[in-house]
Amino acid sequence: MSLLQLKEATIRFGGLTAVNAVSFEIQPGQLFGLIGPNGAGKTTCFNLITGVYKPTSGDILFEGQPIAGTPPNKIASRGICRTFQNIRLFKSMSVLENVVTAGFLRHKTSLLSSLLYTPAVIKETKELEAEAMQLLKAVSLDHVAHVCSADLSYGMQRRLEIARAMATQPKLLLLDEPAAGMNPQEKQDLNGMVRNIREQFGLTVLLIEHDMRFVMSLCEQIVVLDHGEEIAQGGPDEIRNDPKVIAAYLGEPA
């Protein structure tokens, strides 16, 4: 069974069809790429999957269950989490706190017991912090765990977003332009890091990216959107040579 399945997912904003009958399937463990020119509807697709928008028509299935129209926090608790194109950390919190907060779903203790600071709370807090440190290690931010997250460099903030998303223990991780604004060296590190966390945590990854070299070297399966429509789907090599894709990016040959 596929992990995530979009069936003719469509969303219209007034007269604009931002995503038009897009269908694709992601298998467990895949590194899946979603590409397309600006305004193709990639981030809208993410918003549909994570429950920010409800599709006008069509279906979205996660582990065989329909999730379209479910509130974002419920979808997160089912195991889909994401990062953002423009960084949206909880800025005045420390790096560690950002990650611990995202583990909210898994906190068991009640408000009363946490006010009373019972031993169970202390134990749980320690466990959550230990887990968060593990995640920070995976994105090599463990050495800045107690730094205020707003003070991190851009590349580090991007990695923290990934760690924070990981803290919800997702089965499917959505990365919205994770390499945006990174220099070549940082991109290369990110490539290795994404592969690593997939191995280490048994994740499936769906990512949006503009950097073709990055996508082609990382993803096993790629979907191409243009003007809200799906124009191609396949492995990196197929996509590279697809005339429709080339036309979408470079324009029709004169």
Partner: peptide, 28 residues
């Protein structure tokens, strides 16, 4: 104490930073 050290307080601060991001991180 509640706002700084309990999970609900932390979630409150997260929501006040970024309503949508908090929601997408599983906070109701």
């Amino acid at each position: 104490y509640l706002v700084m050290y309990t999970k609900r307080g932390r979630a409150m601060r997260a929501v006040s930073h970024d309503f949508d991001a908090a929601s997408l991180m599983g906070i109701n």
